[in-house]
Simulated scan of single mutants.
Amino acid sequence: MITVVGSINMDLVVESEKNPTQGETLLGKSFSTFPGGKGANQAVAAARLGSCVNFVGNIGKDIFGKELQENLTKEGISIEHINIVKDQSTGVANIILSENDNRIIVVPGANFSLFPSDIEKVKEFLAKSAIVIVQLEILPKVC
Results as ranks from 00 to 15, higher is better:
Ala46Asn: 08
Asp118Lys: 00
Leu136Lys: 11
Phe112Tyr: 15
Ile131Met: 05
Leu49His: 00
Lys18Gly: 07
Gln69Cys: 15
Leu68Asp: 00
Gln42Leu: 04
Arg48Met: 09
Asn58Lys: 14
Glu70Pro: 10
Ala93Leu: 00
Thr25Ala: 06
Lys128Arg: 09
Leu114Ala: 02
Glu70Asp: 15
Lys141Ala: 11
Gly76Thr: 06
Lys123Met: 10
Ile133Thr: 09
Phe112Lys: 08
Val56Leu: 08
Ala110Trp: 03
Met1Cys: 08
Asn58Arg: 10
Lys38His: 04
Val122Gln: 02
Leu49Lys: 11
Ile138Met: 05
Lys86Ile: 06
Val5Met: 12
Lys29His: 08
Leu68Ile: 15
Phe31Gly: 11
Lys123Leu: 05
Glu15Asp: 10
Glu137His: 09
Lys86Met: 07
Lys29Asn: 04
Ser7Tyr: 01
Thr73Phe: 00
Glu17Phe: 03
Ile82Thr: 12
Gly60Pro: 09
Cys143Pro: 14
Phe112Gly: 10
Phe112Cys: 09
Pro116Asp: 01
Glu70Gly: 06
Ile119Phe: 06
Leu27Lys: 14
Val13Gln: 09
Leu136Asp: 10
Thr3Leu: 05
Gly65Pro: 03
Gly39Ile: 12
Leu136Ala: 15
Thr73Ser: 11
Ile133Asn: 07
Ser98His: 03
Ile63Gly: 01
Leu136Cys: 04
Asn94Thr: 02
Asp87Phe: 02
Thr73Glu: 14
Phe112Arg: 06
Thr25Phe: 03
Gly91Glu: 05
Pro20Val: 15
